[in-house]
Amino acid sequence: MGQLASALVIVIVGVLGCACYFYGSNFLLDKLLPSKNKPYDVVARNLRIAGYIRPWLFLGPAFLALGFYLVYPVVESFRLSFFGRSGEVFVGLSNYAWLFNSDEFYQAFKNNMLWLIVVPTAATFFGLIIAVMTDRIWWGNIAKSLIFMPMAISFIGASVIWKFIYDFRSGDDPQIGLLNAVVVFFGGDPQPWITLPFWNNFFLMVILVWIQTGFAMVILSAALRGIPDETVEAAVLDGANGFQIFYKIMVPQIWGTIAVVWTTITILVLKVFDIVLAMTNGQWGTQVLANEMFDWMFRGGGDFGRGAVVAIVIMVLVVPIMVWNIRRANAEMEGR
């Protein structure tokens, strides 16, 4: 409890500290560059200078935090990828050489590609289908809320949930994992799903699809509602059936949103490691890049060089989406 109290104190101190910084720096700026009861020239000059400085007072803390926590690490990771395990000995390209000769890396890379194809596609697809269907039934909002719910569950929590579903009992013991129980019910043989080579990857992906479908659904549902009713009504008058309306009228109009959803989930897939860590820790051929990287950070005391090299690979995969995002944001701002 004392710990929680100190957390609350920290909140108050932190908020007050921030407030004091912003208030104090503004106050100081106004004191240093006064604009009242001075000759016109002085006032004009002071205001101009203050106008240059003030935005940076507002941006300062964010600027520093972003620099230290995101920009500097990207640069530093790049540098470390040329250094040895403790980050002190320059080793040239040998980390990269190791990377491209490592079966482990290929396995992780291959799996990651599989994740990148399956998860965003499946989540977007289900999200779209559910969004379309829930929009036409009276209890749609309840349905959406329930399908959206896994969003709030941590990856590790979701892993436990699904590990329970995939639970496997050998022999004739009753299966307490739902999946095997269903399989047995229909007369099949129970399987240790998590260790089934290759297919186990898909069983892990299901977890992320389960989590992300709600996200896709919420956004696509809003986009669908943004479609002018007139276009749908016109299509009905033109004699289009339900599926034609969906594929030829609705989907093309929300194409941009679908792309946004798809890329957002793609980014998430690249970062996700909790699920693999919790379910298999990369065993049985389920390794992915993010977990591989985490592994190298601590394996045998940690190899920063190799870890950094894997991080660079993840970063390279993200860059195209990053560029696309920036372009989109710029276009949007110019539109304003």
């Binding site: 016109y40 006032v43 205001l47």
Partner: peptide
Amino acid sequence: GQLVNDIPPAM
């Protein structure tokens, strides 16, 4: 009668 080019609105 006062030059106000660079004076903020409020003043």
